[in-house]
Amino acid sequence: TTVVVGNKKYTFDNPEAAEKFAKKVAKKLGATVHKTNGTFKVK
């Protein structure tokens, strides 16, 4: 599962961990999490 934050990509074996990370980053940046085909995008 990939999490994309700006131009950085983070890969997780565990989708739950990926989602948690994405939400944490989004909260910090005041952004939102978008899920597309198993990829979480923070923007």
Rank of each mutant, 00 (worst) to 15 (best):
F40Y: 10
E16S: 11
A26D: 01
G38R: 05
T32S: 08
A17M: 12
T11V: 12
K23G: 07
N7A: 10
N37T: 05
E16V: 12
V33E: 01
V33H: 02
E19S: 06
G38C: 06
K20T: 11
N37R: 05
K43E: 15
A26H: 01
E16F: 12
V3K: 00
V33L: 07
D13P: 13
N14A: 07
A31Y: 08
V5G: 00
K24E: 09
V3L: 02
V4Q: 10
A31Q: 05
G30Q: 06
K35T: 07
V42M: 03
N14D: 12
A17T: 12
V25N: 02
K28Y: 09
T1R: 06
V3H: 00
G6F: 15
K24P: 00
P15Y: 14
K28S: 08
A26F: 02
K41F: 15
N7H: 12
V33P: 02
T36M: 12
V42R: 01
A17L: 12
Y10M: 04
T1H: 09
G6L: 09
K43N: 11
A31I: 05
K8Y: 11
T36V: 15
G30P: 01
F21G: 00
N37L: 06
P15N: 08
P15E: 13
T36W: 08
K35R: 10
K27E: 10
T1Q: 06
T1W: 15
K43I: 15
T2S: 10
E16A: 12
D13E: 10
K8W: 12
K41Q: 15
V33K: 01
Y10G: 00
N37E: 10
F12Q: 00
V42D: 03
K43S: 14
A26R: 02
K23L: 14
A26L: 02
F40K: 03
L29P: 02
G30L: 04
T36F: 13
F21C: 04
A22E: 00
K23C: 11
V42S: 02
K20S: 11
K9P: 05
A26M: 02
V42N: 02
E19L: 14
A22W: 02
E16G: 10
F40E: 03
V25E: 04
K20R: 13
N7P: 08
A18D: 00
G6I: 07
K9Y: 11
F40T: 04
Y10A: 02
E16P: 05
V4P: 00
K27L: 12
T11C: 13
N37I: 04
H34V: 15
K24G: 08
V3A: 02
F40W: 14
A17Q: 11
E19F: 14
N37P: 06
T36G: 09
A22M: 02
Y10F: 12
N14Y: 07
T32G: 05
K43M: 15
T1I: 09
V25R: 04
K27W: 08
T1G: 10
G6V: 05
K35N: 09
T2A: 10
N14I: 06
F12A: 00
A18M: 01
T36E: 15
F12I: 02
D13W: 10
N14L: 07
K27F: 10
K9G: 05
V42T: 03
V5T: 03
K28W: 08
K9S: 12
K23Y: 15
K35D: 05
A31V: 07
V33W: 06
A17K: 12
N7V: 10
D13N: 10
F40V: 06
K24Q: 10
N7T: 12
P15M: 11
E16R: 13
V3N: 00
K8D: 04
H34P: 01
H34E: 15
V3M: 01
T39M: 15
V4T: 08
K43V: 15
V3C: 04
K9V: 13
E19G: 06
A31M: 14
F21L: 03
P15A: 12
E19M: 10
K35A: 07
K8G: 04
K24M: 14
N7E: 08
K35E: 08
F21Y: 06
K24V: 09
G6E: 04
K35I: 11
T32L: 06
K9R: 13
F21W: 12
K9H: 12
K41V: 15
T2R: 09
L29H: 06
T39H: 15
V5P: 00
L29N: 04
F40I: 15
N7D: 07
F12L: 03
N37Q: 06
T32M: 07
T32E: 08
Y10K: 02
K35P: 04
A22Y: 02
G6T: 03
D13T: 14
T1E: 04
A17V: 11
V4N: 05
N14T: 10
T39S: 15
K23M: 14
A26G: 04
N37M: 05
A26W: 02
D13L: 11
K27Q: 10
K27P: 01
K43W: 14
K24D: 09
V42P: 03
G6R: 06
F21R: 00
G6C: 11
H34T: 14
K20M: 13
E19W: 15
G38E: 05
V33Y: 07
K41I: 15
K20C: 10
K43Q: 14
V33N: 01
P15K: 07
K23N: 14
K20Y: 12
A17I: 13
N7S: 13
T36N: 08
K28C: 09
G6A: 06
N37F: 05
A26Q: 02
V25S: 03
A26I: 02
A31K: 03
K35V: 12
T2G: 05
Y10D: 00
V25A: 07
V3E: 00
F21I: 01
T39I: 15
N37Y: 05
A26N: 01
A22S: 04
K8P: 00
G38H: 06
H34G: 04
T36H: 13
E16Y: 12
V42L: 06
K8E: 05
D13R: 13
V33D: 01
G38Q: 05
T39V: 14
V3W: 01
K41D: 14
L29S: 04
T32Q: 09
K35Y: 15
